[in-house]
C-alpha cells in the first residue's frame, strides 16, 4: 500500500510528538535516579544532573534485596499471567460463542467486581484472606490478582472472539476437531492479539499492585517488587534516588514482555480469511 508522502509525514509528526510527551516525564525519573542526596525536585530542566551518579543503582543491587524481590515478582506475575490467560480465554469463548442461561447477567456481574474502590474493600478482603489462612502466602496474592484481572480479560477475550467468524470453527469441526479442538487449533491462534493484551494486563496487575500485597505479605524475603520499592518511601524522608532507580528497573521487564509479545499483537491473521 502506497500512500502520499504528506500522510506519512503526518504520521511521523503525531508519533514523534507523543513519543516526546511519553518520554519526558520518564526521563525526569531517570534524572531523579541519577541525583545524589535524595532530591525529588530539581530547579532546572537538565535530564542528566551535573553531579550525576549511579550510586542508587549500585546500592539497589548491593545493599537491597532487589534481586529477591524481582524474582518473587516474576514468579507471582508469571503465574497470574498464565492463570489469567487460561481462564479468560476459555470464559471469554463461552460468553462469545454460546447462548446459555444467565450469560448476560454473569457478564455484567463480573464487571461489578471492579466497581468498588479497592481501598474500601481492603478490610473485608483482609479478613477473608486471614480466615482462609492465606496471610503471608503468594497463593493469596495470586488468587486476588487473578480475580482482579479477570473481568477485563474475560470481556476483552470475548470482544476478540466476536470478531472471528464462527464458520472457521465449524470448518474445523467438520475437519474432525472437537469443540475444544477447534478452539485450540483455530480460534486461539486467531485471537493472539487478544491473548497478548490479556497477558500484558494480567502481568501488569500483578506486577504493580502493592496495597493488598502490603496487607498480606509479612516477610521481607517474600516481598514483591512494588512492596520492596514502597519501603524506600517514608513520609518526609523518602529515598528518592533508590525509588526512582528501582522504578526504572521495574519497567524494564514490562518493556521486555511487551517487546516479546508485540509481534503477535500486531501480526494480523484474520485478514482475508473470510468474506462476509
Amino acid at each position: 500500500m502506497k500512500e502520499p508522502r504528506s500522510i506519512t509525514l503526518v504520521r511521523h509528526a503525531v508519533l514523534l510528538v507523543f513519543v516526546a510527551v511519553s518520554l519526558y516525564p520518564v526521563l525526569n525519573v531517570v534524572s531523579i535516579s541519577l541525583r545524589p542526596g535524595n532530591r525529588l525536585r530539581s530547579t532546572d530542566l537538565a535530564i542528566i544532573p551535573a553531579d550525576w551518579t549511579v550510586a542508587s543503582y549500585v546500592q539497589l543491587f548491593t545493599e537491597q534485596p532487589f534481586l529477591t524481590w524481582l524474582w518473587n515478582s516474576l514468579v507471582v506475575s508469571g503465574l497470574v499471567t498464565l492463570t489469567g490467560v487460561a481462564l479468560a480465554s476459555t470464559a471469554g469463548y463461552a460468553f462469545s460463542r454460546f447462548r446459555f442461561i444467565g450469560r448476560k447477567a454473569t457478564m455484567l456481574a463480573i464487571l461489578t467486581t471492579q466497581m468498588f474502590p479497592a481501598t474500601m474493600l481492603l478490610l473485608p478482603l483482609y479478613i477473608l484472606i486471614a480466615r482462609l489462612g492465606l496471610v503471608n502466602t503468594w497463593l493469596g496474592l495470586m488468587i486476588f490478582y487473578t480475580a482482579t484481572a479477570l473481568p477485563f480479560c474475560v470481556w476483552q477475550m470475548k470482544g476478540f472472539y466476536d470478531t472471528i467468524p464462527p464458520s472457521l470453527e465449524e470448518a474445523a469441526r467438520i475437519d474432525g476437531c472437537s469443540r475444544a479442538g477447534a478452539f485450540r487449533h483455530v480460534v486461539l491462534p486467531l485471537a493472539t492479539p487478544g491473548l497478548v493484551i490479556t497477558a500484558l494486563f494480567s502481568f501488569m496487575t500483578a506486577w504493580s499492585e502493592y496495597i493488598v500485597a502490603a496487607q498480606v505479605m509479612q516477610d521481607e524475603a517474600m516481598f514483591t517488587l512494588p512492596l520492596g520499592i514502597k519501603s524506600f518511601q517514608a513520609s518526609l524522608s523518602s529515598q528518592w534516588g533508590l525509588y526512582a532507580a528501582a522504578s526504572i528497573l521495574v519497567s524494564i521487564p514490562v518493556v521486555a514482555v511487551f517487546l516479546a509479545l508485540s509481534r503477535y499483537l500486531v501480526n494480523g491473521l484474520t485478514l482475508g480469511s473470510v468474506k462476509e
Binding site: 464458520s167 465449524e170 470448518a171 467438520i174 491473521l269 484474520t270 485478514l271 480469511s273 473470510v274
Partner: peptide
C-alpha cells in the same frame, strides 16, 4: 461433525487464515 465422514464448503470459504 468430524466423525460423520462429510466435508463442507462454506459460503465464506472459512479458510484458516
Amino acid at each position: 461433525p468430524g466423525d460423520r465422514d462429510i466435508a463442507m464448503v462454506f459460503q465464506n470459504y472459512a479458510l484458516y487464515p
